[in-house]
Each structure stands twice: as structure tokens, then as C-alpha cells.
Design a protein around this nucleic acid. Sequence first.
DNA 1: CGCTAACCGAGACGGTACGTCAAGTCTTAAC
DNA 2: GTTAAGACTTGACGTACCGTCTCGGTTAGCG
Lengths: 199, 199, 199, 199
Amino acid sequence: MSITPSGNPPRTGGRLRNEDAHHSVLEATAALLVENGYGALTIEGVAKRANVAKSTVYRWWKSKPALVMDAYAHETATRVPEPDTGTLAGDLTAFVADLYRIGRDPVRTKALTGLMAEAQLDPAFAEAFRAWVATRRELVTTLLTRAVTREELPATTDLDHATDLVFGPFWYRLLVAHAPLDPADAKAHVTTLLRALAP
Amino acid sequence: MSITPSGNPPRTGGRLRNEDAHHSVLEATAALLVENGYGALTIEGVAKRANVAKSTVYRWWKSKPALVMDAYAHETATRVPEPDTGTLAGDLTAFVADLYRIGRDPVRTKALTGLMAEAQLDPAFAEAFRAWVATRRELVTTLLTRAVTREELPATTDLDHATDLVFGPFWYRLLVAHAPLDPADAKAHVTTLLRALAP
Amino acid sequence: MSITPSGNPPRTGGRLRNEDAHHSVLEATAALLVENGYGALTIEGVAKRANVAKSTVYRWWKSKPALVMDAYAHETATRVPEPDTGTLAGDLTAFVADLYRIGRDPVRTKALTGLMAEAQLDPAFAEAFRAWVATRRELVTTLLTRAVTREELPATTDLDHATDLVFGPFWYRLLVAHAPLDPADAKAHVTTLLRALAP
Amino acid sequence: MSITPSGNPPRTGGRLRNEDAHHSVLEATAALLVENGYGALTIEGVAKRANVAKSTVYRWWKSKPALVMDAYAHETATRVPEPDTGTLAGDLTAFVADLYRIGRDPVRTKALTGLMAEAQLDPAFAEAFRAWVATRRELVTTLLTRAVTREELPATTDLDHATDLVFGPFWYRLLVAHAPLDPADAKAHVTTLLRALAP
DNA sequence: CGCTAACCGAGACGGTACGTCAAGTCTTAAC
DNA sequence: GTTAAGACTTGACGTACCGTCTCGGTTAGCG
């Protein structure tokens, strides 16, 4: 998910990157995100808050969404990878519960909704965002495919549609925020999914 | 949905509002929305395109989202009201099919996704947006309530969660746009809903 | 000094001009002039304060300076005309004392300095202003001419320069306002004038 | 007279100020001042004429009068400092002749009259303007004080009033412009001053 | 151990759009 | 046909960030 270059360019010398600056930028981003929201977040503001030059921010992150994506990744830290409990119910319960836990974390919530907004506004970023979404969707399709193999789901299951059923209601709740996103809701969501997919 | 005042203020004189200007503003908004997207839409640009003074735009619409909401309403024109076919399947089919037809209309698609984005960025607008979303949700809850009365659905049905299942996957497809929103998908969505709600 | 038409146009019908509106406009102008100064005075503000439509103000006064000039004239009311005491000292004392009394009247002070400013900014008004100044200057030249006739002043007196000596220091004090304009200063000014002109 | 900081702020980095941009702004200001006058001068117009971003102008000059003051100073270049010829007549002749030379320079004339106008309109600037005027007045009071010391003038001379006699008629001519400001007039003015002050 | 490349801070720069304000003109309704 | 009300075009205001750039100064590691 990181946007920062990971390859090793053939360095021949020069000052090393200042990791402190890096961290303080990401922390400032997370803090400002929670305090004022994605809309009010500006590169200039982040630089000032992090006590860092604006050009330093631009050196490492080419845009505001790239910065926020990194802040999100930094927050997520050790991700629970793809669950594999042996049953569809187990896998879905694990995955969805993990998903709804995002609602508890203001940094991740603000980051995700902000990035979704950005994707609507900036076509260039939309592509990158869609690619990231695809990696998340794949986790679910894999999980569902295993269930088909185990014959828990019919072979005719429309995996794409099924995946929409997993993410759709969650994102809708996150974005519209008509009611708080409670981890308890994850249970109801899973029940619905099982009923809809495996009748 | 309109933001412009519809009441009749106690006029005692004064030049009448220029309806032509009004229309050309809304049309310019719709055109620019489709051409460049919500993000690139500026009040200044709309004014120029509509051959209207910037202050005229500001007189009637206090912000960009208000303008886009009106353009959306203007586009929608005569809305299909709440369907009432006598059966849950009939009502859901009618409602969802109508919903997915939005995907065919670039103006409405760009407007909706843009407004959802704006709601993430501007807390003040978020409230107005949520209120509008609520009116849409009510159509569905009413529809579902009737089904409960007819005993097509169990009395224990969680209407709020059920409503999320109707709108969630639709909005998710609209926003992520990982695949085109085909009206044919409406059928699959309805089937899923019926299976999930009325087992 | 008034800009409003004073002749009796051959009216043939129509609503009569509202004299109350007229007065309230001039009073509003004077009040706002004192409260916020010439710079902050706007036609819009005057109209609002006078409870009159903006177009009504524009009908009778074609510009802000024209309005202020009328307000000034309205304030001055019964002007002391050209003094004629029989001696240069007497005439100058009367004239200059009257001049310095303006410093006591905030409406006239603000009006005059504002109009002088306007004359610097608006070439069209500059001409009208210069014409008004000329009428004031003529009072002094006439007065000085009488003194020449009476042989109180040499026949070679440069009347134009002498007039500048009368008005210059006064206006300079009024505009720069480095010290309050005291009527007592008039006496010193006259003494200087007599010494400079009639040695 | 300059408004821009002339001291050496403790620079620790940052791109250096573009002197070309600076000059072109001042030149554009001077040119537009002469062409259209102070009233028609706008920051936006100056920026456009100087091929400079509006924000660059605002970075260095906080307002239109500040900009014009700098343009005036730039025009004046090497000022003749306080004259000290040894006699009152000599000092006054030098000072007043220098003063009247302003009338020959359209940039300085337009700048001065415009600034005087601004001082009437903007109370905040009035203070700054008065301070600048004070520095000019001091030159004259010093000059007169020397004459008192030399007993060319009586010890009872009212220096403030005398200074008004020096500047008043000059400014009055400059502002009213009822007749061109000829350097030859300086001679008459000095003669008058000497007669009025040292009888 | 000095060279050199990349870093970092500071901040100037050309831009773009913002939302506001008042100017002056024009259109309509009421009296 | 004047008056009130207010919509309209126009143009500048001063502000905020954008993303780029140019500096002075620092800090490795390589040779």
C-alpha cells in the first residue's frame, strides 16, 4: 500500500533520509486528519505541524492522497492477513469483524472516507484507489472460492456480486454515517451474507 | 431536494429573477460535471460557461454542492415516487431497477458521487447530505414495513440493516466503479435481497 | 453648489418627488460621513441608512461626490457671503475666521477632505471640484482687489499667489491634520498674511 | 520612506528574493500611475503589467499606498538632504526650489496627490502618512531653528505655523491644480516667506 | 579525509479559485 | 412617471494553497 519507493537506487553517496522527519510527517498527517478531517488537510499544514519543510513532504509523497494512504498503512501496522478457518462462516466472521473494527479507529475511518472522496474528485488517483480496493476484494473472492471448493456455496455463485455484498453495506455505513459503526453490527452482516449466499 | 427557496416571500417590487440565467447555470453545471467531473467543477467556471456573473451564481446557490444538488434535481425532473405494487418482490424490483438506472445517466452519476465526496470533505454539507439520504432511505423502510404488515417478512426484521443492504452495494459500485453499473445487475441484487430477508 | 436640478421642469404628471426621501438621504450621508469617514461611505450604505432604494439615490445624485457636495451645502445652510468691512484687515479677519470655523464642524471637515481626495482619484470630478474651488477663490480675489483699489496693497500684488497663501495653509492643516484646527489659529494666519502682503 | 524591510533579517535559508520582479513591479506602478492616475491603479493591474503573480505583490507590499510610497521612493532615488547654506534665504530657496521640482515629475506628483487622497480615505494609512509628513516638516523646522539661532528670525517665531506656510501653498497648488506648478513660482513663494517671517 | 551527492530548512514564485463587496444599470410592481 | 425593491454584470478585493523552484547549510559514504 505504501507509495514510497522501495527499490534500492544505485546510491553512490549523499546524505541519508531523515527517518525522524518521515515519522513526524505521518504523525502530523494522522493527527490533523482526526482533528480537522480530510477536507481541511493541506500539505502546507502538515509540513508546519511536523516542523518540516514543504519540499520535504513533496519529496517523499507526490500528493495528498499518497500521503494519507501512507498514514493509513502506518496506522494499520501489522495487518491480519487472509483468514482461513476452514469454514465459510468462520472466514466471513473473521474478515467482517476485522473490517468493522475500522469504525473504531478515527484515523483509519477519516483516511478511508477521505480517500474515497479523493477518488471521486481526482481521476488519476481513482485508478490507484481502485487498484488498492482490488487487493482487498481479492481477499474476499479467494475466501469465497474456497467455500465453493468445499461445496459450501453453489458453483454458480456470482463472486463479484457476493463481494459487493460484503463491502457495500460496510462502506455505505462508513460514508453516510447515519448511525455509528458498531462491531456488533458485523454479526448481523455475516448472518445476512450466509443466508443470501448459502440458502 | 432543491436548495433554492420555494416559498413566496412578500415581494413588494423589484426586478424579477431571470429564469434564463437560472437554467443556463444549471445546464452549465450539468455539462461541466460530465465533461470534467465534480472535482474540476468551479463556481467561476460555471459562471463563465453560463455567461452569467459569478455573483449571480452566489446569489442563488450558496456553495458548489448546493448548486450540484439543484442540477441533480433539475435532471431528475419527474421522480418516480414510492412504488406500491402489492408484493415485496414487486416493490423491490421497481425501486432497485429505478436506482440502477442512475448508472446510465452521467449527470446524475457524477453528481451523486461528487456529493458523496463533498460530504466527506465538508462537515457542514455532510449534515444536509445525510438528511437527503434519509428521505431516500425512508422510501425503502416504508416499503419494507408494508411487507412486514403483509407478513412477507418476519416482524423481527431489522429495517435499518435491510435498508443498508439495498443502498450499500449500489453506492459501492457507483463509487468504486470497478465494473460498469448495469441495469441488469438490479435483478441479481433483488434476488439476493429477497433471499436474505425472506428465507 | 447644489447638483440637484433647481429649475422647474414642465411636469406633466406622475408621482411627486418625495421630499422626505431627499432629506433622509442627505442626513444619512452626513451621519455616515462623520461616523465612518468619506472612504467608507457607499451609496449602498446611504440608501440602507436612509431607508431608500439605491436607485432613488442614483436618480437625484449621479455620484458619491455629488451627494457629498449636496450634504455639505445642506450643512452650510445660510452662508456668510463675501465680507466687506472697508479694510483689508477686517475683510481677511472675517473671511479667515469663517474658514477656520469649518474645523469645528465634523460634517464639513470630512466632506471637504473627502471631496479633495475624490478630486485626486476621479479626473471627471476633479474638474467640477476645481470649478467649486474657483468660486471660493474669487471671493478672496475680489476682497484683495478692493484692497488694491484702496491702496492698502501695492498694484503689483500677485492676486493668484496671494489667494494661495490664504487657502494653502488652511487646507494643508485640514488634510494632514498634524494638529487640531483651532479657530484661534485664524488670527495668526491673518497676521502673517498682512505682513506678507502689505509690508 | 520605504515600507519594505531594509534591515537584514536573520536569514537561515530560502530562495532569494527576485530583484527583477521587484523592479518590474515598481516600474509598472510608476507607469500606471502616470497613465491612469492613482485612482485607477489596482494591485491586480500592477501585477499583470509587471508580469508577476498577484501574490508576489502582496508578499512585499501590504497595500496599494505602501506600493506607491515605494514607487515614489524609488523614483526620488538620491534625495537632496537638508540644505545648509548659512542664511535663511539660501536655505529656503534651496528647499522650496527642490520642492517645486516635484511638479515637473509626473510620477512623484501623481504619487503624492494619490497618497494624500488615500490618507483621507484610510485612517490606518493616514497615520503612516502623517509620520512621513512629519519627517519632511522636521527638515524645515530645523532650518528655521538655525535661522533663529543666527538671529535672522525673532525668537518668538511660531515654527509650526511657519512650516505650514512653507508646505501649505505648495500642496494646495499640487492638489487643486488650478494652475501648473512652475519652478519659477518657487521664487515668489520664498520672497513671501521671508517677508512674512523676517520683517 | 576530503569529495560529492542527496538531504533538509526556508521561503519566494507564478498560478488558480475562493467568497465578498460595491458600483452602476436595468426591470418590474406599486402608488 | 416617480418610487421602491432588488436582480444583474462587472471588476477588484485580499486570502489560501497549490506545486515548483532556488537557495544555504548539513550529513553520510566512497574513494
